[in-house]
């Protein structure tokens, strides 16, 4: 079973309310997350993007965007997330799906993700224990738009 971590806690999939839809799949109660070709801004559907997608302004109307990681060491989804959050002011839920690795959620989090669907076999305990391995970071991020030296007295 995949594990959903949402807002830093394990969320039972049954309470999630979102379902990843194949192209043309029927609606069965859950809200759907659909590929960009099937998605309309006014539909209320979530949007499913591959890591190499080009972000668009209209995407910010989605209630949820799921970015797929083809493999966990593919960082394209990180840049896509940053662009959606900072350039297109996307304020809905940003979810990491695909080959999401529990050791790496702290990167994802700082790029603006707020939920993570860990595939079967990946340890949710690890994910929860390593969400914030560092108290603070040097550089700006989606979570913290100011670099450390701008927030606290440094280099002195």
């Amino acid at each position: 079973m995949p594990t959903l971590i949402s807002h830093d806690t394990i969320t039972p999939i049954s309470q999630d309310g979102w379902e990843l839809a194949e192209v043309g799949a029927p609606v069965n109660g859950s809200r759907r997350i659909v590929p960009v070709d099937d998605w309309r801004p006014e539909s209320g559907d979530g949007l499913h993007l591959p890591g190499d997608a080009e972000p668009e302004a209209r995407f910010s109307e989605a209630p949820l965007i799921a970015i797929n990681f083809a493999n966990f060491s593919d960082g394209r989804g990180l840049s896509l997330a940053v662009l959606l959050r900072t350039r297109f002011n996307f304020t809905g839920e940003l979810r990491a799906i695909g080959d999401v690795h529990p050791e790496l959620l702290y990167y994802l989090r700082r790029c603006g993700f707020d939920s993570y669907l860990l595939p079967d076999g990946r340890r949710a305990e690890t994910a929860l224990s390593t969400l914030a391995p560092y108290t603070d970071y040097y550089q700006a991020s989606v979570l913290e738009p100011n670099p450390a030296h701008r927030r606290i007295r440094r280099f002195a």
Partner: peptide
């Protein structure tokens, strides 16, 4: 050095 250390976006190039 500081900017690139554990950069959230650029550690998986």
């Amino acid at each position: 050095r500081q900017w690139s250390t554990s950069h959230p976006e650029f550690d998986w190039l």
